[in-house]
Amino acid sequence: MPDMSDHRPATLIPGGAVFPHRHLTGIEGLQPHEIMFLLDEAERWIMPNAEHAAPDKRLAGLTQINAFFENSTRTLLSFEIAGKRLGADVVNMHAAQSSVKKGETLIDTAMTLNAMRADVIVIRHMSSGAVRLIADKVDCPVLNAGDGRHEHPTQALLDALTIRRRRGAIAHQRVVICGDLLHSRVARSNILALTALAAEVRVCAPTTLMPPAIERMGVTAFTDFDAALDGADVVMMLRLQTERMSGGYVPSPREYRLRYGLTPERLARAKPDALVMHPGPMNRGIEIDSSVADHAERSAITEQVAMGVAVRMACLDVLTRRARGVEGWA
């Protein structure tokens, strides 16, 4: 039985003392100060990104493979831009073009990627735990860009960064996460990150879309969205896939909107300056009304996208420091 764990004794873990992890497979296993460290690292890229500043090519000469076994547009683009801004040679591998469809096992694919001597691999896969499986088989750092319903750590980091910048802090913020929590890796990573950083997390969904025993993750569960919104500092809406809202988990889109749609009237139950977030892509008019999504002061949805690039630059930078021989990390 190979050691599947990432939690090896600190002395054996490559990387610096501030972030002693080889991979970023999830928020689980990260200490609060390590999460904060990644947020701090991301801060430094926000201004240069916004100002189209002269590029910092610290990853020049390194190869970044984005291995996406599941379709993605925005996350893939975000990782690609992040890598390129830092000067890395970025290669994208799409499942549709790969031998995965020809029956090659995930382990074999991992070995192949490893043999190509990538310096960092970014992976998205439709199965929970798949990224960890690959991370155990390759020599370079692995970044989880979403595995099944398990984790999507960079999304949680960019959400935390957005909240910290817009609300001034994360601790003691009342964050409501509403939508399809059952199938959501975004929700799991956000719950882990926000509870670690001492936010008050409320989750809200019909019970058909609520993961069992979710309270054990340190959140309060609601089925009544109006009640959940009471006094909220942040309202984070999740996408509900269309195939799940036609009778399987929810009777219809319009009934879902009736109970869980974020309308201006509903938002009024939250704090007057409450922040509205959505990981995208949005179903406008279903889980979120356009007037809310596009609200200039309240909506942070486009800012989330910008933070995404900064967070991914920070993660790529931090995870490759050892290989680049950065002082204190080698």
Binding site: S128, G129, R149, H150, E151, P212, A213, R216, M217
Partner: peptide, 15 residues
């Protein structure tokens, strides 16, 4: 089986 472990791992579970 539905429970904390399955939820944390994001695995499809049944009661």
């Amino acid at each position: 089986t539905s429970g904390e472990t399955a939820t944390r791992l994001g695995l499809p579970s049944a009661p």
